[in-house]
Amino acid sequence: MELVYKGKTKDVYLDENGQTVLYFKDDMTGKDGVFDPGENQVGLKVEGSGKAGLKMTSFFFEKLNSADIPTHYVDSDVEKREMRVKKINIFGEGLEVICRYKAVGSFIRRYSSYIEEGAELPAYVEVTLKDDEKQDPFITKDALEALNILTADEYSEIADLTVKISEVVKEELAQKGLDLYDIKLEFGRDQDTGEVLLIDEISGGNMRVYKDGENIEPLKIVDYLFDNK
């Protein structure tokens, strides 16, 4: 396969048929050897995390596709750590959309004068620009529109999809006794149709999950989800 892009946690290839293939690596974001979904650098390498991430991603993308929620997912081979996806165009240089159910992470660091850590949030959606050098700055709907990154209608569609997708994940985890505190999603446009699609992944590496008030490590989420604990 032809390497197209080398990312922090995934590499992008084109196979012999011209299909886009994502390869899930064992690298995870964090700092000083500690996992953090909000970090912009690889902080640790955990054997088996790539396969676990793809297993969880495939499960949720197939569930969303079945529910007619648009994604870029085509199929996957968990053993090979490969996922085939539709060709997409990203918004600008890339956006990250966070849905928050609890005041933790960067949210509490910014707003601790107004809210207690761990307080409930109403599926609060916020958007950041993917920009490692600038630490993924937050951006408003009006700024996104003014910079021609997306339209007002696309912003509303992404916000609605974010809540809908996050609720699917939250409910699935709740069945296993897990609480979703926040989740980071990405979106793009289908190259052929222009449709807004969920892209990237849904794995333990891009969410904070707790059980009985204790943080659950990303790999352990997979164990709970598939009853391997």
Rank of each mutant, 00 (worst) to 15 (best):
L185M: 15
E172D: 03
D223P: 00
I149E: 09
E195R: 10
S113N: 10
L54E: 01
I108R: 06
D15E: 10
K55E: 13
P70S: 08
D212R: 00
D36W: 13
D26E: 04
K45D: 01
K130I: 06
K31Q: 07
T71R: 02
L121E: 09
I115L: 06
L219H: 02
Q135W: 05
E201K: 14
A159V: 13
G18I: 02
M1T: 10
I88C: 03
D131E: 06
K55W: 01
V21C: 11
G48Q: 00
L173W: 09
Y114D: 11
D227F: 05
I199W: 08
A143C: 00
F107E: 08
F24T: 02
Y111T: 04
Q41Y: 00
D227K: 13
E214I: 06
Q175H: 14
D136Q: 05
G205H: 04
E201W: 14
A67Q: 14
S203E: 08
C99P: 03
P218L: 14
K51D: 06
I165E: 03
G92D: 12
D32E: 15
Y73N: 08
F24Q: 09
M28C: 10
I90E: 08
D132T: 04
L22Y: 15
D160M: 13
E133D: 15
M56W: 05
H72G: 06
L198C: 13
G105T: 02
L129H: 07
T128I: 11
L3V: 08
K51G: 14
V97G: 05
Y224K: 05
T140Y: 09
T71M: 12
N89S: 15
Y124E: 03
L64N: 09
T57M: 05
K10M: 04
T29W: 08
Q19L: 13
I139E: 02
D32C: 05
Y13I: 05
E117V: 01
I183Q: 05
G33E: 07
D190S: 07
T193C: 05
I88A: 08
V21A: 08
E217V: 12
D77R: 11
K45Y: 11
G43R: 12
K134H: 02
T151F: 02
D182K: 11
T71A: 10
F61P: 00
G48F: 08
Q191T: 13
F60G: 05
I108P: 02
D26Y: 02
D160I: 00
E167G: 01
E62F: 01
L3W: 03
L180G: 09
L121H: 06
I139N: 09
E171R: 09
F91A: 14
D227A: 14
R81T: 14
S112R: 15
F138P: 00
V222F: 15
D15W: 12
L150K: 05
Y114V: 13
C99E: 10
E82K: 14
V46S: 10
Y181F: 15
L161E: 05
Y124N: 02
G38K: 00
F61Y: 12
